[in-house]
């Protein structure tokens, strides 16, 4: 098959498999696990734009997920707003957060930007805990209604699964369009050389701000979906540990790729539920994996940075090129 046909065939087959999964799997818990995969894919693709394309690091993405989750929870559970409106506003609120975080990115690079985003994440984590009247504080926010679209409430795992993956598909499509046209090259040019980008007429500031906002919006939408799928949120969900996990997905996924972060998000999310996925696995083995999960993420990041810079995406690009010439 030609590489051009493959470019369409592979996503089409993957999309089909993802779409029919709830029809094949009877286990409701497994469907839920794959719903969580979808939620993380949305965040990872957004972070892929920011990190893998524009070269900007964020250690605060869990904060955007949290902002989206709390916004949606408050608007639907407390104010009885229609779910779809709350969902859209969740993305907007998180996007606004992205705008705030974009400001330091205009002056800071590398480690310093990482520190600033980490500080932002911790700050928001504090807000989630302390803003009791809105967030419910450390006890969390309960009784978040299921998503309902045009009077139709989605409460079955399969319905929720399709909603989440529908949003994920749109997010991937939107992101893919951006990266395939001028904006994608502009992002990569900022990553490649800011001096060169400026000299080529790229609006470096504009690109950074936009990517931060888009990336944060994706995270916020994922958070809003999470809140309505699970029905309960608390500050312990949106911590530095989650931010590190998201960054791990982006780093392992690789540079200048959307498929890479999506695949990495899938693998890392499934790692959390090994006991449900691997039938023979003992309870203690599964627990050990869960306990060491943050360490595994850290180790994976280190291994990728040391031995496979460019991540999964660079590995299969190299393979593809080797295949063509050989």
């Amino acid at each position: 098959m030609s590489s051009r046909a493959l470019r369409w065939a592979v996503p089409a087959v993957v999309a089909l498999l993802v779409a029919v999964l709830p029809l094949v799997i009877a286990d409701r818990f497994l469907i839920k696990v794959f719903t969580f995969v979808g939620l993380n894919v949305i965040v990872a693709v957004g972070l892929g734009l920011l990190f893998g394309y524009a070269g900007q690091v964020s250690l605060g993405h869990a904060a955007f997920v949290g902002m989206g989750a709390y916004t949606s929870a408050y608007l639907t559970a407390r104010l009885d707003w229609p779910w779809i409106v709350a969902f859209a506003l969740s993305g907007a609120v998180a996007g606004l957060g992205g705008l705030v975080l974009a400001i330091p990115s205009l002056r800071l690079r590398g480690h310093y930007l990482a520190m600033a985003t980490l500080g932002f994440g911790e700050l928001m984590s504090l807000v989630f805990t302390e803003a009791d009247p809105i967030t419910g504080g450390v006890d969390g926010f309960t009784g978040i209604p299921f998503p309902s679209i045009m009077g139709f409430e989605l409460r079955q795992p399969a319905g929720l699964y399709w909603l989440v993956w529908g949003v994920a598909a749109i997010a991937i499509l939107v992101a893919a369009n951006m990266v395939n046209f001028g904006p994608g090259r502009a992002m990569r040019s900022v990553h490649g050389s800011e001096l060169g980008a400026v000299a080529s007429g790229v609006d470096v500031t504009g690109v950074k701000v936009r990517v931060f906002v888009i990336s944060a919006t994706f995270a916020g939408l994922s958070g809003a979906l999470y809140a309505s799928v699970v029905g309960f949120i608390s500050p312990s969900v949106f911590t530095l540990q989650s931010s590190v996990a998201y960054l791990a997905m982006a780093v392992i996924g690789g540079t200048a790729s959307l498929a890479g972060p999506a695949v990495a998000a899938t693998l890392l999310t499934l790692l959390e539920y090994t006991d449900a996925l691997v039938p023979g696995l003992s309870r203690s083995a599964a627990q050990t994996i869960q306990e060491y999960q943050p360490d595994l993420y850290g180790l994976a990041i280190i291994l990728v940075v040391l031995f496979a810079p460019g991540g999964l995406a660079a590995l299969w690009r190299r393979r593809a090129r080797g295949g063509e010439s050989g």
């Binding site: 951006m178 395939n180 502009a186 990569r188 490649g192 001096l195 007429g201 790229v202 200048a256």
Partner: peptide
């Protein structure tokens, strides 16, 4: 000051974009 991870063609296309207006929205 080239964009090392982009092809030669893509590098030049970035320059050509200076005269264009495709926004993130239009592209998306």
């Amino acid at each position: 000051q080239l964009f090392d991870e982009m092809t030669a063609r893509e590098n030049v296309m970035v320059g050509a974009q200076a005269r264009q207006r495709t926004s993130f929205l239009v592209a998306s």
